[in-house]
Design a protein around this nucleic acid. Sequence first.
RNA 1: GCCGCAGUAGCUCAGAUGGUAGAGCACGACAUUCGUAAUGUUGGGGUCGGGGGUUCGAGUCCCUUCUGCGGCACCA
Length: 670
Amino acid sequence: MIKITLPDGNVREVAPGTTPADIAAAIGPGLAKAAIAARVDGELRDLMLPLEADAHLALVTAKDEADALELARHDFAHVLAEAVQALFPGTQITFGPSTDDGFYYDVMAPASRAPFSMEDLPAIEEKMREIIRADKPLIREVWMREDLISRWESLGETFKAEWAKELPEFEDLTVYWSGDPNGPNGDTAWMDMCRGPHLASTGKLDPAAFKLMRVAGAYWRGDQKNAQLTRIYGTGWLNKKQLDAHLHRLEEAAKRDHRKIGQEMDLFHLQQEAHGSVFWHPRGYLIWRELEAYMRRAIDAAGYREVKTPQVMDARQWEQSGHWGKYRENMFVIPDEAPNVADEGPLVSDDAEWMALKPMNCPAHVLIFRQGIKSYRDLPLRFYENGCCHRNEPHGALHGLMRVRQFTQDDAHIFCREDQIVEEVRAFCALADRIYKDFGFTYSIKLALRPEKRFGSDEMWDKAENELRDAVAAAGLNTPEYGWEELPGEGAFYAPKLEWHLTDAIGRTWQVGTIQSDRVLPERLDASYIGEDGERHRPVMLHRAIFGSYERFIGILIEHYAGKFPFWLAPVQAVVATIVSDADDYAGEVVEKLRAAGIRAELDVRNEKINYKVREHSVAKVPNLLVVGRREAEEGTVALRVLGKEGQTMLSLDDVISRLANEALPPDMR
RNA sequence: GCCGCAGUAGCUCAGAUGGUAGAGCACGACAUUCGUAAUGUUGGGGUCGGGGGUUCGAGUCCCUUCUGCGGCACCA
């Protein structure tokens, strides 16, 4: 007999070979029906896989949504492959994992036809539904390696055969049948090699809960030297409601796309002559300027001092900081000599000295710190910079404002003593909290722990990780409410880091803020201060950012607000629109007064109907529309129409100005 | 950087089989002076991403290159 410990602490003694399904049945018919898989000693396993030794067992049901989704998506991937092979005999199958919102399967179309395209997807979807409705049992078998390899070879599945040959010796080679090969419909059974686990049958999937989304190219085993496969992507869920919600989210996200809104609202543009760098138009740059002013108020109040450092530095400086060695392939490098224009020869001589555009601000801040002698009394020193950096990102990585080659970070480095770290990090947590809330974001905080490849001793890492933990605890943010989580192996090679992940208005997350302690760069660049003991000591350097970069943060804000910026950030805050030309002079007066009160107001006296003007300024997402006609001009009033609201309010000119002037204040100035 | 797809007017897009480009919106002009989400008439606007080739003739076919999009890889 073996001992099976259940989550509530109960221990059941059962015969070896008992399956989790048997145990579920013994507990109750409800659970037997609801159970879709099992966690055995924490590992997700098939319901039908016999237990052979003492174990902790938890039965997984649809309520364990993360597990249930994972299983369903993996099963959808298998059904996809089965459907493709049923429809297109001769197709080779390779891999089919689950993804964040669904699944994919990489397949090789038969030589007789072109690679699969979008047009093939509806037929494949229909076949998948057939397979799901047939409720084929998913049966696990362990095979001998040679048997499996020869089976794949006999089927012409060269990729599967190759993979079977390379799987580690100690691993059982398992296959899953879709349909019982020994049953009455054995000829329709389909087999894939897979580690599992899987649901008990295809019928556990909801045939209305998936959709094939697109096809894309992919290489066998991710290597471009290998054969070109077709990857078929799908999104998969537990039920139709979840699928519909997901498709709706995608639609919403497409409507909010910052590239689309940026063009519609005339905020910025990108063009191929400077790809990856942003041309900010007047309206977009107004948002930038508001953010910059906001951030300056915040960092001034928090005891930072703003600096500005060179855009280009000698390569030797980057060698010393370590960037030349580790980061050079992402740097823009320029010769420190006049280009050769005299003849047809190379522009740059062989012995040119090299300089580089800065990809980061940190070394320059250390160089400021190093000027003059610093005492322990000077610490902490907090240097802030709106630091414009250039990184030569891979072309395929560029994406609107979110991934660019020139960007400006709200970057600061805090030079402090060991004993000041916790308080500095705590204070940063509080600052970030206030700022994110001002923009209406909720967030979660993650601590990225030591990676496998790292500098420094285990003691140093223990200490560094604990400092960050302590600081977050001191800020009261290490709670489930703040999504506190530790991510093993995800830290930078020199230090653990705290990451802030924002959740936007439609539930997407964006990693923006970070703080990380660094003991490496002060060492490399020989930064020191004189301690109380009269000796030289290394300061610790805290790298930190809240927006991350202005470009990306504005991109996130555009999508978060769907272009309907809060009043203080709106590029045009009010438009005064006339109904008849008799009101033109008065309207001009209203605009002047609004501008005098600090409001970004524009005048619309075009010879158009008021309906047209209302529509146009609404579509342009102007938060306040002030309509004036003959009546308002005579009475000294305006009709205020607020974006997103029906109807309008009649107000005296003085009232509307004081009201708007008040509402236009940034959140930190109220 | 890799794969797939795309690039035609400011924007969104249409242009079978090769025969020197078209719509809507936007923009200009004229008429209309209008009360809260599109007034009418009319006009101008394109070296069809760049380069090369095939052809009597290329937006269309071929090669090449750049950029964008969806993924992959990348994001110390």
